[in-house]
């Protein structure tokens, strides 16, 4: 009955040029679970992520978020409940100032002014960036940008968070901050990452993708102790 889960059932996706990026992908992430999405470059992680909020629709198969199927007509609803944070903060933060960026989602939802204000405060507080409100994105450090990027979707109060490479290109301190922040979330999370440490500390479960197929879906500890699998992923040599 909870709305906070994602379910992929036999999802296949082929790009218009015929390249098949996802092949018969099925999994279910239940309420409050934090799941890592692992796999070498080109394994189809990004393609899979774009399916979670309907930026891509499956060629065949079905994606459900909560009880709602991801289809053309449910998209506005889906996009409110699945917050997608892209890898490059410069693509995520396109408005002139932080507050305008964080307000973008709530304003598109046509929320009343006071509620928008409340959402901005809440989202920036959750990532510890209240004092950056009036800044321009180019005035922020890499770590701050990443945190504000997350705030831009938190302000829509999604029930599911999908993060693409949240810790890439961050220094040690910013990365620690970020891990702490993500750990504090109660949202259902799907995190695509190459960052072993982050995955171990945040995610109880990992899904491993290779060539568009799921080759493993197990508790994170098990995955990282499976030498063969690690070798296949290129995480150890």
């Amino acid at each position: 009955m909870s709305h906070h889960y994602i379910q992929f059932s036999n999802v296949c996706y082929a790009y218009p040029n015929g390249v098949e990026a996802l092949h018969d992908v099925s999994f279910r992430i239940s309420h409050g679970e934090k799941v890592a999405l692992l796999g070498p470059n080109g394994a189809g992680k990004s393609t899979l992520i774009l399916h979670t909020n309907g930026l891509l629709l499956p060629t065949s198969g079905e994606v459900n978020v909560g009880d709602i199927p991801v289809e053309k007509k449910t998209l506005p609803l889906i996009r409110q409940s699945v917050g997608l944070v892209f890898q490059n903060s410069d693509d995520q933060l396109f408005m002139p100032t932080v507050e305008e960026d964080v307000a973008f989602g709530p304003l598109n939802m046509k929320l009343p002014e006071r509620e928008v204000e409340h959402r901005i405060d809440m989202a920036l507080k959750a990532v510890g960036c209240q004092d950056l409100r009036k800044r321009a994105p180019s005035q922020l450090s890499g770590g701050q940008r990443r945190r504000v990027s997350i705030a831009t979707v938190l302000s829509m109060e999604p029930s599911v968070l999908v993060l693409d490479e949240p810790s890439s290109n961050l220094d040690w301190k910013s990365r620690e901050d970020l891990i702490r922040i993500i750990s504090s979330f109660t949202h259902t999370c799907l995190i695509a990452s190459h960052d072993v440490d982050l995955v171990k500390r945040v995610c109880q479960r990992s899904i491993v993708l290779k060539d568009g197929r799921i080759i493993a879906d197990r508790p994170t500890d098990e995955i990282f102790t499976d030498q063969d699998l690690m070798r296949e992923l290129g995480l150890i040599s």
Partner: peptide, 15 residues
Amino acid sequence: AAMISRGFSGTIPTY
């Protein structure tokens, strides 16, 4: 894509 996933539908709202 980032705009669409945050509910953009053709008009940039003003804050």
